[in-house]
Design a protein around this nucleic acid. Structure first.
Length: 534
RNA sequence: GCUCCGAUAGUGUAGCACGGCCAAUCAUACAGGACUCUCACUCCUGCGACUCGGGUUCGAAUCCCGAUCGGAGCACCA
């Protein structure tokens, strides 16, 4: 019926026929159905066994033929990029890659005061973009382009679409809520130009004047009534190239509106919180005769593991010493994630898998870890690391050297461990032992515990068979010549002893058996490792 | 208060523009099993969802109305 719409009018006639047939079919067994189906339509059976594979990845973009796709990621560099930023970086850049367009990073750093840019963050953003495989084709800094915004402001004033408003914030809100024009709205363009020039020359104090874009003052949505485009800020900008050059700064809706057009943006993908921006900026586009880029929005993202975090909140916590810095493994900054050994490809996949739904979501790092684990597992060498170490003395055997494989399935060679008559065990494992417990020290030999205080055991032989037969627990251990290791993880610090060969794994991700993956971050007096994930 | 979005398994996600092929996809989590000298990896199996109520229709996850819940905007923040 889907294929032949003209049959739809007969739908009612079909129902009783189907009923009849169903009664017939119900009399037979599933085996008979199978046989019958094979006889009349074998291709349907095949179809049943074929798994449906819906196309993965991002939805297709609505593109105009013959037009190069231009997209952007537009952060305010008032803190380091976080996992949240990666969504903007990856989704936008991925589309650009897919359609062979241009990817721009634009720093919306037009607030020298409340969201004051952080100088180091500019480089961090660019650097992290590159690391994520999203090297920007162009870098734009809004604070370098203030004169452009001034030009358009002047143009809009001349056209009578913008005015300098001297209302106090609260007064204006009253007018706005009552759908009433404030006294400054109907001043002539000539007069407004005079006021605008005075604003620019610094004659007015902060908060005494603001340039507004005229929209519909009686629009049913209060969010769209005459919004601010420029305000006076006398705090110098942190960038020395800019400093105190300007005392009039554009607000986001204005700056973004102008730039998206100036830079030739074809598509914008951004947070749902900026949905109204499109409507507000639409007025500017209408006045200037521009075409608004195509927009897509995504909902709010919360991460189970990190809860609410704001740049300013984090900065405060770092200053107070709660965190060691922006790279503290407990933080969701890209710098921290990198340091922990999460690979960019894992983040890309994770973000693309998320898609761009408008639903607000609350996700867990588990999926990201699972993605990363698959990438890291084949390339991570295995080592023993014993946390909360307890010494075990072993009698009944002499010194030996063993050479376990660096990887259980990949051919990555071996490491060497020397054992005399003592090894370290995890306190956690020791607590489960009793005198008489038999266990397998992985890759070494079998022992039987003879005493708990002090912890002693006797050698029971190397046999794998007897270990299997007696169902001994296999635990890992560390040699006495191991190196002290400090593991920094989101759940706190672990200290212990690892095989000394880990010192050759600087900057690499290894797996500490029965503990998890870690990135070896520093090799000095002791080894510092960042916990990646289980 | 006004306005605008959204709602599919524990968590994400596909399907919704154009209603039948949906007994609803995939991933992850969880449970069981196989493999393994790691609690890792891999492989099998299982688990589990269309927010609710009306309407349109022969037929609704899909269209319409309402309710509920969640989020956002109404800044001289981005």
């Amino acid at each position: 019926m889907g294929e032949c719409p003209q049959l739809r009018s007969k739908a009612k006639d079909v129902t009783p026929l189907i009923q009849e047939i169903l009664v017939e079919v119900a009399k037979e067994t599933p085996e008979q159905w199978q046989a019958r189906l094979e006889a009349i339509a074998p291709e349907l059976i095949e179809e049943l066994s074929v798994k449906k594979e819906p196309d993965k990845g991002l939805k297709v973009l609505d593109i105009e033929v013959g037009k190069q796709v231009v997209m952007r990621f537009a952060p305010n560099p008032n803190g380091p990029p976080t996992l949240g930023s990666t969504r903007g970086i990856i989704v936008n850049s991925e589309y650009v890659k897919k359609y062979g367009g241009k990817f721009i990073i634009r720093f919306d750093d037009t607030d020298p005061q409340t969201k004051r840019p952080m100088l180091e963050a500019y480089d961090w953003y660019v650097d992290d973009c590159k690391w994520l495989g999203a090297k920007p084709d162009e870098i734009v800094i809004a604070s370098d382009r203030i004169p452009i915004y001034y030009d358009y402001a002047r143009k809009l004033i001349e056209m009578g679409h913008a005015y300098v408003c001297f209302c106090d914030g609260e007064d204006f809100k009253k007018f706005k809520d009552a759908k009433q024009a404030c006294p400054h709205r109907d001043v002539s363009p000539q007069e407004n130009l005079k006021y605008w020039d005075k604003m620019l020359s610094g004659e007015y104090e902060e908060k005494t004047a603001v340039l507004r874009i005229k929209t519909d003052i009686d629009h049913k949505d209060p969010a769209l009534r005459d919004y601010g485009a420029f305000r006076i800020v006398k705090t110098p900008h942190p960038r020395h190239e800019v400093g105190d050059k300007y005392c009039v700064w554009p607000l986001l809706d204005f700056e973004g509106a102008i730039e998206d057009h100036e830079l030739g943006m074809t598509h914008i993908i951004r947070g749902k919180d900026l949905m109204d921006s499109e409507k507000r900026q639409g007025y500017i586009y209408k006045y200037l005769g521009w075409q608004y880029p195509k927009t897509t929005h995504w909902g709010r993202v919360k991460m189970h593991e990190f809860g609410k975090f704001s740049t300013s909140g984090l900065r405060k916590a770092i200053e107070e010493g709660e965190y060691t810095g922006w790279e503290d493994p407990r933080l969701p900054t890209i710098r921290a994630i990198r340091r922990r050994g999460i690979l960019p490809e894992a983040i890309r996949k994770f973000m693309i898998e998320l898609g761009v739904g408008e639903t607000d979501i609350s996700i867990s790092m588990d999926s990201l870890y699972a993605e990363n684990r698959k990438l890291v597992d084949p390339i991570a060498n295995r080592y023993f690391f014993v946390w909360d170490p307890v010494e075990l003395e072993i009698t009944g055997t002499g010194p030996c050297t063993i050479s376990p494989a660096l990887h259980p399935t990949e051919d990555r060679g071996c490491r060497e461990i020397e054992v005399n008559n003592k090894v370290y065990l995890c306190k956690e494992d020791v607590e489960k032992l009793q005198a008489g417990s038999k266990l397998r020290l992985k890759d070494l030999y079998n022992v039987e515990i003879t005493s708990l205080e002090p912890l002693q055991a006797k050698y029971l032989g190397d046999s794998m068979e007897s270990m299997k037969k007696e169902k001994m627990r296999i635990i890992h251990w560390a040699p006495m010549d191991g190196v002290p290791v400090k593991v920094l993880s989101p759940d706190g610090e672990f200290t212990g002893i690892a095989e000394k060969q880990v010192t050759s794994e600087l900057n690499k991700v290894v797996q500490f058996e029965r503990f998890g993956f870690c990135r070896i971050d520093a090799v000095g007096e002791d080894v510092v490792a960042y916990f990646t994930h289980k």
